[in-house]
């Protein structure tokens, strides 16, 4: 059970109450990082409920919206703080695909779980994945895809990452993906939903 009222408000998806509580705690002089921690605690509970099938996409989307609003309030106070501490993960939607919803849900859950997510956006050129992987030395790269027509681009992206000799795992995520696709494009893991992705991250960073 959550004793933290802010985390509880997130879990209950009480959007107005969350903003009120964030503002109250800032006014009280609480450290913005502690407040973020409460938010993350709540979000991680939401993630757990999604994993166990008690929450659905509609709850995840709502939670993401509440988090976004809360972070907007907090951002000016957070300038000096570092968000993640568990490690770097590079995430982006494959070249040729402009869909961002699945990717955004994963990014939100990963951030909530304490990873530092480098979000490259959608329709990401192959070079950007390679560059970000080199710069961040991220042990995990996530490539999101919705369109089956983007297989080749996914394969080329992964080939390019491997060609750099980087010691990084690659997970591909998308609704239609299965073992056949994973094998074809040469990824290490695949996920059909955000919570599978989260489990893989946990495994790699442990």
């Amino acid at each position: 059970m959550l004793t933290d009222t802010l985390a509880k408000a997130i879990l209950d998806l009480e959007e107005e109450q969350v903003i009120v509580l964030v503002k109250e705690r800032l006014a009280k002089g609480d450290s913005p990082l502690d407040i973020v921690e409460s938010l993350q605690k709540g979000m991680s509970e939401v993630g757990k409920l999604f994993e166990t099938g008690e929450f659905f996409l509609s709850e995840l989307v709502m939670c993401g919206e509440i988090m976004k609003d809360a972070m907007e309030v907090l951002e000016p106070h957070l300038i000096d703080s570092v968000s993640g501490n568990k490690g770097n993960i590079v995430v982006g939607t494959v070249k040729g695909d402009i869909h961002d919803l699945g990717k955004n849900i994963v990014v939100m859950l990963l951030k909530g779980a304490g990873y530092n997510v480098i979000d490259l956006g959608v329709d990401v050129p192959i070079e950007n994945f390679v560059e970000a992987a080199k710069e961040s030395k991220a042990p995990l790269i996530g490539i999101s895809v919705l369109l089956t027509g983007c297989q080749e681009a996914m394969k080329k992206t992964i080939d390019a990452i491997r060609a750099e000799g980087l010691n990084t795992k690659v997970i591909i995520g998308g609704n239609y993906i299965d073992e056949l696709v994973r094998e074809y494009v040469g990824a290490d893991y695949f996920a059909n939903n955000a919570s599978d992705g989260l489990r893989v991250a946990k495994q790699i960073f442990s």
Binding site: L57, S58, V61, M62, L101
Partner: peptide
């Protein structure tokens, strides 16, 4: 839109 209607439900 997908996000819009899911938020509308709440």
């Amino acid at each position: 839109s997908m996000k819009g209607i899911l938020l509308d439900l709440r």
